[in-house]
Amino acid sequence: MSDPKIFSHPGEGEWVATPDGNRRRVVLFTDELMVVEFGFEKGGVGALHSHPHVQASYIAEGRFEVTIDGRTETLAAGSSFIVPSNLVHGVKALEAGRLVDTFAPHRADFL
C-alpha cells in the first residue's frame, strides 16, 4: 500500500469516474480504514453490489434511495447507514448529492 493519508483539506484529492457513471475521490486512508466521497447527479445509480469490507455511509447532500439486503429506505442529507460485510447494497440519487463512505479495511481497488 502507498503511504497512508491521515489529513485532508477541502478541494484535495482527484475525482475519478466510477464504472456506473458517478464520481469518487479518496479522502483519507490507512490499512484499517478508508474515507471516500462519492458524487451523484440526479438519477445516478450506485449499482447493486457486495464486498467483504464493512461500509458506513453519511449523506452529505441530497436524497437517496438506499437498498441493503433487499430492504429499501429513502434517506436525506444528515442521515447515515451501515452495510455489514458481503451484503448486497446500492443507491439511487433522487436528487444530486454526495455520500461520504468509510470502509474497513481500506479498499485497495480504489488506490
Rank of each mutant, 00 (worst) to 15 (best):
residue 52 P to I: 02
residue 47 A to N: 11
residue 87 L to K: 13
residue 30 T to Y: 07
residue 102 T to I: 02
residue 16 V to Y: 03
residue 11 G to T: 08
residue 110 F to W: 04
residue 87 L to M: 12
residue 90 G to N: 08
residue 35 V to P: 00
residue 83 V to D: 02
residue 67 T to P: 02
residue 87 L to Q: 13
residue 61 E to M: 07
residue 42 K to I: 00
residue 23 R to K: 14
residue 109 D to K: 00
residue 85 S to I: 08
residue 81 F to S: 07
residue 52 P to S: 11
residue 55 Q to K: 06
residue 60 A to N: 03
residue 76 A to P: 02
residue 22 N to D: 05
residue 79 S to I: 01
residue 38 F to G: 09
residue 17 A to T: 13
residue 86 N to W: 11
residue 25 R to Y: 07
residue 59 I to G: 02
residue 66 V to K: 04
residue 1 M to Q: 10
residue 59 I to P: 03
residue 92 K to W: 00
residue 77 A to D: 00
residue 28 L to C: 14
residue 76 A to S: 15
residue 58 Y to W: 13
residue 78 G to E: 06
residue 99 L to S: 11
residue 87 L to D: 04
residue 28 L to T: 14
residue 59 I to V: 12
residue 82 I to N: 04
residue 5 K to V: 15
residue 22 N to E: 10
residue 63 R to I: 05
residue 63 R to G: 03
residue 100 V to G: 01
residue 105 P to I: 12
residue 97 G to H: 02
residue 41 E to Q: 13
residue 11 G to E: 10
residue 46 G to T: 10
residue 74 T to W: 01
residue 14 E to K: 14
residue 111 L to P: 00
residue 63 R to C: 12
residue 24 R to C: 02
residue 12 E to R: 10
residue 69 D to H: 12
residue 84 P to W: 08
residue 67 T to C: 09
residue 43 G to D: 09
residue 107 R to T: 03
residue 47 A to Q: 10
residue 31 D to C: 00
residue 67 T to W: 07
residue 18 T to I: 05
residue 9 H to G: 03
residue 81 F to N: 05
residue 73 E to Y: 05
residue 16 V to M: 06
residue 27 V to N: 03
residue 35 V to W: 11
residue 52 P to M: 11
residue 105 P to N: 10
residue 54 V to L: 13
residue 31 D to A: 14
residue 78 G to L: 08
residue 66 V to A: 06
residue 13 G to I: 09
residue 36 V to W: 02
residue 41 E to Y: 09
residue 31 D to M: 08
residue 62 G to A: 09
residue 57 S to V: 15
residue 102 T to Q: 09
residue 99 L to P: 04
residue 67 T to G: 04
residue 27 V to S: 08
residue 20 D to P: 00
residue 38 F to T: 09
residue 11 G to Q: 08
residue 58 Y to H: 13
residue 46 G to A: 15
residue 92 K to F: 00
residue 26 V to G: 05
residue 51 H to W: 06
residue 60 A to D: 02
residue 4 P to I: 04
residue 48 L to M: 15
residue 5 K to I: 15
residue 40 F to L: 08
residue 104 A to Q: 13
residue 71 R to V: 15
residue 57 S to N: 12
residue 63 R to F: 00
residue 30 T to C: 07
residue 49 H to R: 12
residue 102 T to R: 01
residue 70 G to A: 07
residue 86 N to H: 13
residue 58 Y to P: 00
residue 70 G to M: 09
residue 83 V to F: 06
residue 106 H to P: 00
residue 6 I to F: 12
residue 37 E to D: 14
residue 59 I to W: 08
